[in-house]
Amino acid sequence: MKKNYYQPEDLKKFGSISEWNEDLGAKFFDYYNSVFEKGSLTKREKSLIALAVSHVVQCPYCIDAYTKDCLQRGIVKEDMMEAVHVGAAIKAGAALVHGVQMMNRHDQLSM
């Protein structure tokens, strides 16, 4: 076994997950590729959403892939960082909104 959980070269092997379950693998990649086709949203918009989500789910492979994808689409670094902040703000908000639950519980338990 390698000493790190994440290996940069593993990204290239993503497709190999189909080897152990061809049917589900094919379904996933088919779905994945369809999602990123141009729809109501442009490919550029989808790339920025993917970049933001990559940060929120903290997937190093996704960050690697979508930083490069954004560069190829001519998206400037300022726009990329702005997208990351959108993701981060939602993540921070998601943590903080639970503060209401904490306040409710606090008040319920307190005299």
Partner: peptide, 19 residues
């Protein structure tokens, strides 16, 4: 002529032309 400013491939020619 657009060529990438780094170690990546150029994106779609028509989309970049529009931009």
């Amino acid at each position: 002529v657009y060529n990438p400013s780094g170690a990546f491939l150029p994106g779609n020619q028509a989309a970049l032309e529009t931009d």
